[in-house]
Design a protein around this nucleic acid. Structure first.
Lengths: 156, 156
DNA sequence: TATTGTTATACTCTATAACTATA
DNA sequence: TATAGTTATAGAGTATAACAATA
């Protein structure tokens, strides 16, 4: 017997929209688009990264990474470095300005999270997150295992 | 005293990503992009709609609507009709094919919702949705009131 | 004068394909 | 021969600005 979940799915989608809008507003304050922010985010977690690795983790083409890195380079947030052992490859690293930008993003999100969650009791939050994890598990396509490095792909 | 919610916000963002990915996979099966699907969705709920109204509800420029309607028209999902009283305006309506496409989307989402939520007990789901609504209320910017017509903006 | 929707133009993100320098 | 990253080209979505037709 299948329960009628019609309105529920729409509420979930609206929730997702609100969350990604929150994310976007934070990025916008730093003058960043979502794809560009995601590149910074990856490098922040992995350290200097080849464009090939970026293409794999962002699930886009190498050509696309070229454009994103070009743009971030022009903004002074990122720089290309020589790969120590492979002269075909390029390492993309954060500049000091890039590091500061990521720090600003993190600080903004920490304060946002407080506003969002502080009024909710510990047990209520725990139960909420447990159900959320349960639903998330069913949402995860087999092709994409849960992130292991603490840097989930930012919402698209 | 502010609790440390660092990982929590990231889990919420990942959840949003998974949900919007689910949404996109459904749209992709109907050969639709998110902006185009949103136009269909709006017209499905409001009936024939002027491009001005579409621009307002999608929060984009009229120029943008022109492009989206052109594309949906070329796909045979939508047609432009004369406005009965304002000869400047255009009414955009679903074609029979467009209606069938929307019906397919709805059916697909109903079955997806079952897969996603059926194993969760009634009380657990109720409590989950209550907390979700509480967080959603704090997420909603003043500028965008909660949807009143059952057609929340699709996630971006 | 204000509004509706268009043309003109430009920018971002995305993709495929062909090419180069290296492995 | 395969891989890393580029150039070339194209298409979708978005924006602003100028304009035509209508209100």
């Amino acid at each position: 017997m299948t329960t009628n979940h019609d309105g529920t799915l729409e509420r979930l989608f609206e929730f997702a929209t609100l969350l990604t809008d929150l994310l976007d507003r934070g990025l916008e304050q730093q003058g960043l688009s979502r794809p560009r922010a995601e590149v910074l985010w990856r490098i922040h977690h992995h350290g200097p990264t080849t464009q090939r690795q970026l293409a794999d983790s962002l699930q886009c083409t190498p050509r696309n990474v070229t454009g994103l890195v070009d743009a971030l380079d022009a903004l002074g947030l990122v720089e290309r470095q020589r790969h120590p052992s492979d002269r075909r490859a390029v390492l993309v690293a954060l500049t000091p300005t890039g590091r500061r930008t990521v720090d600003n993003l993190l600080a903004a999100y920490r304060s946002r999270a407080s506003e969002l969650l502080d009024g909710i009791s510990g047990p209520q939050l725990t139960s909420f997150l447990a159900t959320l994890a349960q639903v998330a598990d069913r949402l995860r396509p087999d092709s994409r295992p849960p992130p292991v490095d603490g840097s989930p792909r930012l919402a698209r």
